[in-house]
C-alpha cells in the first residue's frame, strides 16, 4: 500500500458502519453496527498509532480537520470578528477577534483555510499577506491594552510567496510581529492545529505556551520544498519530512513545545467533539496558570523560554580552541 493511502481501509469500514446504522431498530443490523464500530476503532488505533511523519503531514492537511473558526464556534461565545490592518486592507487568511472563553474575555487570532474551492481561494489557502500579520499585531496590541489574554491557532502552509506580498513587505511584517510578541504583557497561548508552516506560522506563535495537536506538524520549510532543494526532487517529501523531525512528539522532545494534545483515535477530523474537549482541557489549565502570574513578568519568562531553544547542550558544542 502506498504511504499516502493509509485512510482507505478506515473509509471502507466507516461506510459499512454507516450502512449498518441506517436501520435503527433492526437487532441484527444493530449488532453488526456495534461489531463494525469496534473494528473501526481498532483499525483507527492501529493505523493512527504509527503514522509516519509524512502521513502526519497529510493528516495535518486533511480538509475535514477543524479550522480556527470551528474552534471559535465550539469553545467561545460572543465572537466578534474584526477586520483590517488600518494601512492597506483586510486579510481573510488570518482571522482576528474578541470572544468569551468560559466567561473570560479573550483575543483570538488564527489562520483560516477554506473547505470548498471558492472558500479556499477567498482564504488564499490559509496563506496570509503582510496586511494579515499587521492586522494580527494590531489586535494583539489591543489585547495588551485591554489586558485580554491571546489565543492563537496555527494552520498555514506558510506566508504567501507572491509578488504583492513582497512589495508590501512580507518579511518586515513577520519580523515586526516576532519582536513585538516577545514583549506583550498579556498571556499568549499558541496551538498548532494543522500545518505550522515556517515564518508564516511563527509570526503569530511567539507564546508563553506553545502546544501542538498530536498529528500536526511544525517545520522550517514544507517537506516538498525541502526535498526539491536538497534532493532536487519534490517527490522525496516523505524522506524530507522524516529528516526534519517535524512531528509534535519530536518537537516536544527537543523542548520547542509545551504540550502535545491527543487527537481522537481516527485523527482530529474523525471526531471534532472529542478533539474540542481535549483542547479545552489544556487551554483552560494553561490560561489559569498564566493568569496567576504577574502580567508584567510575562515578557521575561517568555524571553527565557525562547532563549533556551537551541541551547539544551545538545544542539551545539564548544569546539576545542584550535580554530
Amino acid at each position: 500500500m502506498a504511504e499516502g493511502d493509509f485512510e482507505a481501509p478506515l473509509l471502507t469500514l466507516q461506510k459499512r458502519l454507516d450502512e449498518a446504522r441506517a436501520f435503527p431498530g433492526d437487532p441484527a443490523k444493530e449488532k453488526e453496527a456495534a461489531k463494525l464500530a469496534d473494528e473501526l476503532l481498532k483499525a483507527q488505533r492501529e493505523i493512527y498509532g504509527k503514522l509516519t511523519p509524512w502521513q502526519k503531514t497529510l493528516v495535518a492537511r486533511n480538509g475535514n480537520r477543524p479550522y480556527t473558526l470551528d474552534y471559535v464556534n465550539a469553545l467561545f461565545t460572543e465572537w466578534t470578528e474584526i477586520h483590517g490592518d488600518r494601512r492597506f486592507g483586510d486579510d481573510p487568511a488570518l482571522v482576528c477577534g474578541f470572544a468569551l472563553y468560559k466567561e473570560r474575555p479573550i483575543a483570538v487570532i488564527g489562520h483560516q483555510k477554506g473547505r470548498d474551492t471558492k472558500q479556499k481561494i477567498y482564504r488564499n489557502f490559509g496563506m496570509p499577506k503582510p496586511e494579515g500579520y499587521r492586522k494580527a499585531m494590531r489586535v494583539m496590541e489591543l489585547a495588551a491594552k485591554f489586558r485580554r489574554p491571546i489565543l492563537t491557532f496555527i494552520d498555514t502552509p506558510g506566508a504567501y510567496p507572491g509578488l504583492d506580498a513582497e512589495e508590501r513587505g512580507q518579511a518586515e511584517a513577520i519580523a515586526w510581529n516576532l519582536r513585538e510578541m516577545a514583549r506583550l504583557q498579556v498571556p499568549v497561548i499558541v496551538l498548532v492545529t494543522g500545518e505550522g508552516g515556517s515564518g508564516g506560522a511563527l509570526a503569530i506563535a511567539v507564546g508563553d505556551r506553545v502546544n501542538m495537536l498530536e498529528h500536526s506538524v511544525y517545520s522550517v520549510i514544507s517537506p516538498e520544498g525541502c526535498a526539491s532543494i536538497l534532493w532536487r526532487d519534490a517527490g522525496r517529501a516523505s524522506e524530507a519530512a522524516a529528516a526534519m523531525k517535524i512531528t509534535a512528539v519530536d518537537l516536544k522532545g527537543m523542548g520547542l513545545i509545551d504540550d502535545v494534545i491527543p487527537e481522537p483515535p481516527g485523527g482530529a477530523h474523525s471526531d471534532h467533539e472529542l478533539l474540542f474537549k481535549n483542547v479545552d482541557a489544556v487551554l483552560d489549565r494553561q490560561l489559569e496558570e498564566l493568569l496567576a502570574q504577574d502580567a508584567a513578568t510575562l515578557p521575561a519568562t517568555r524571553y527565557d523560554k525562547f532563549r533556551q531553544m537551541g541551547r539544551l547542550g545538545r544542539e551545539f558544542l564548544e569546539a576545542p580552541a584550535t580554530v
Binding site: L251, L256, M309
Partner: peptide, 16 residues
Amino acid sequence: MMEGTLSLMQMAKISA
C-alpha cells in the same frame, strides 16, 4: 533546513 524547526525558532529568539 538541516536543523529543522530549531532553525525556525532562532528567528523568535533573536527578535526577542
